[in-house]
Design a protein around this nucleic acid. Sequence first.
DNA 1: GCTAAATGCTCTAGCGACTAGAGGATCAAG
DNA 2: CTTGATCCTCTAGTCGCTAGAGCATTTAGC
Lengths: 140, 140
Amino acid sequence: MRAISIGAVAKATGVKVPTIRYYEEVGLLPAADRTASNRRSYDETTVRRLRFIRHARDLGFSVDAIRQLIDLSDQPDRSCGDVDSIARLHLADIDEKIARLTALRSEVERMVDEGAHGRVADCRVIEVLGDHAACLHETH
Amino acid sequence: MRAISIGAVAKATGVKVPTIRYYEEVGLLPAADRTASNRRSYDETTVRRLRFIRHARDLGFSVDAIRQLIDLSDQPDRSCGDVDSIARLHLADIDEKIARLTALRSEVERMVDEGAHGRVADCRVIEVLGDHAACLHETH
DNA sequence: GCTAAATGCTCTAGCGACTAGAGGATCAAG
DNA sequence: CTTGATCCTCTAGTCGCTAGAGCATTTAGC
């Protein structure tokens, strides 16, 4: 394996240099080997791990969830169940966010649909914001 | 108007005490009057304003957007157009978030639906995360 | 071989919207 | 008069980075 600089790793993975250092700091990446002049030196293993991390982040997994997934993927003989339940938890989380946003959306849309009147004094948006009773749902 | 303590305002609005102080700090609320012993002293005006703020926050408006809305609502003779466009911008923002989350959702669901195999070594979740090519969409 | 630009290093601070806690003053009820 | 609730300010932490200062080192062109 030949050595790769942090900049080259950044180019290869699309993860920015400071972000790579940050991932090291928070324990998503092991402390990198250093050259004689103290620069971080990587190999293909790190590039693969970073691609994994980036992909999981793109899918919205938290850094903490990714740490757990990495720990699990380092123990290939364990049951897949734990990995699966992390992913399912994340799915439930996404569902909740979508549901919440959809409820908000209808509320805000209703607000703007009631129309812009001439003056701020008659503005439905301001009025609705000031009076929770004007809302469809108790809980947004 | 009689004086209301910060705790009473918190109870009346559902906004926590430290959050009220924070809103003052960032300029959503004017600096409160103080009693002889330096405690914040409010009246009904603040309670109404805080309800407005809280409602807007519940609907996902940013503190910055709320600051603009408050400024506008203090000028009742202006056109309602600016208020309306803030709300419409927010609506577009919500739509974008929903679209993004929906795309993520399908990706993550597909991942967990491919099933938990016996060992982590065969786990589809780990595999998909490690290989972006296994995804439906180029951009999540 | 020399110089200048690029890249690397560490450290600190900032984003948004709070939340938590320390350490101290004051108030209200029994 | 004491006790507990409430209030004050200040600092630091949350999450996942991003930006910048102020250096050292490497690389490319000449």
